[in-house]
Design a protein around this nucleic acid. Structure first.
Length: 353
DNA sequence: ACTCCACAGGAAGGATTGGGCA
DNA sequence: TGCCCAATCCTTCCTGTGGAGT
């Protein structure tokens, strides 16, 4: 049923950004100095997950690049260090040969490389920047003359409280995005359906239900629309029905989580498998089981088992990725998986966990 | 009220990795 | 090829927190 799958990809950029006109204007005004060859103003974009923060930044920068000599780089920052962020920016810069960016180059050298490459305005989008203030990358970037920042994060208060005073002063423009209304999201879904599905495949009442259940989160709504279309096709229909909508969210969430899990390294996979298999595990039991299966679990991999402290870091990452959760006070914390239907790596499910 | 205990998470330092250079 | 240096990942050490037991 899906005629153009690209329309449903997370990184798909629609030609027109519906219901974000004001935000686009705000951002465009902040970028305006760059059209005269000057440093653009720094911007903070905040809002809950899946409401279009990243798409807003990419869309507005694409528009800017159409009529101005401005470079831009988009860097996902989750868990990244200062060096890693600077390297990503250099890799994305059109005037830098990626092979000249050493994996262990000193941060000073990277900053110098960026400073000399930035001979015209550069807008750097720091995506998922929550927690980035723990590194000094924001201050490093603010100190480069033609480099301006678009910082994307969830919670402005938390981010600004942790940020360096110099960085806080620079972030003069703040764009807050709220969840979409049901009507707004229904229109967005309709536009996607027109582009990615056959005519009349997605009737208005079903689109409204999808928009309603997505609670204003566009990413969830779009993935659910895709899942509903797939389910309708599997069930021999040419049009999405209520039953497809009802089952679509489970498939959409499952897909997002499964993709998150496969993107993580092996240590995370082992820990996830343990929590998944147990159904609910205290910290003490979790470590006990990890130690018990470590030899077998790591036998066929170049990786070696890690200590308790590192396991705690991996568990946090699994939680950030919406794969596990925990409840209760630290001494009685119980780890559980968010979705039992997300199976661990096949090689790990064979172990006697 | 006090102590003990389990646990989380920050800080600091060691081991490893990989690029630059003589 | 071997040494140096910096980043990264991991461990050890430590402190803070809050429930359980006395």
């Amino acid at each position: 049923m899906i005629t153009d799958p690209r329309v449903f990809e997370d990184d798909y950029l629609p030609r027109e950004l519906m219901h974000r006109g004001q935000a686009v204007e705000h951002l465009s005004r902040a970028f305006e100095p760059a059209t005269r060859g000057e440093r653009a103003r720094d911007v903070l974009i905040t809002g809950p997950s899946g409401v279009g923060k990243t798409v807003l930044a990419r869309h507005t920068l694409d528009r800017l690049a159409d009529h101005a000599d401005v470079d831009h780089a988009h860097v996902p920052c989750l868990g990244q260090t200062t060096g890693a962020v600077l390297r990503d920016i250099l890799h994305a810069h059109p005037h830098v040969d990626g092979s000249e960016v050493a994996a262990n180059a000193p941060v000073d050298d990277l900053r110098g490389q960026l400073r000399s490459a930035a001979d015209r305005p550069v807008v750097v989008v720091l995506d998922e920047a929550d927690g980035l203030h723990a590194t000094d990358v924001l201050a490093e970037l603010s100190a480069i003359p033609l480099v301006s920042l678009v910082v994307i994060c969830h919670d402005p208060e938390e981010f600004l409280a942790g940020a360096d005073a110099h960085v806080r002063d620079h972030l003069g423009v703040h764009v807050r995005l709220d969840r979409y209304g049901v009507d707004e999201l229904a229109e967005i879904l309709k536009a996607r359906a027109i582009q990615g599905l056959p005519p009349a495949a997605a009737p208005t009442p079903q689109l409204r239900t999808l928009a309603d259940e997505a609670a204003g989160v566009a990413r969830v709504g779009i993935q659910a629309l895709r899942a509903a279309a797939e389910l309708a096709a599997e069930r021999g229909r040419t049009q999405i029905a209520d039953a497809d909508v009802a089952d679509a969210f489970e498939r959409a969430r499952h897909r997002i989580r499964a993709s998150n899990l496969t993107s993580l390294p092996y240590h995370h996979q082992v820990l996830y498998a343990l929590v998944h298999d147990a159904g609910g595990l205290s910290a003490g039991k979790l470590h006990e089981r990890y130690d018990a299966v470590a030899d077998a679990a790591y036998a066929d991999t170049p990786a070696t088992p890690i200590g308790k402290r590192s396991r705690r870091n991996k568990l946090r990452k699994l939680r950030e990725y919406d794969l596990i959760d925990w409840h209760g006070p630290p001494q009685h914390r119980v780890y559980t998986v968010c979705d039992e239907t997300i199976a661990p790596l096949e090689s790990l499910s064979d172990l006697e966990l």
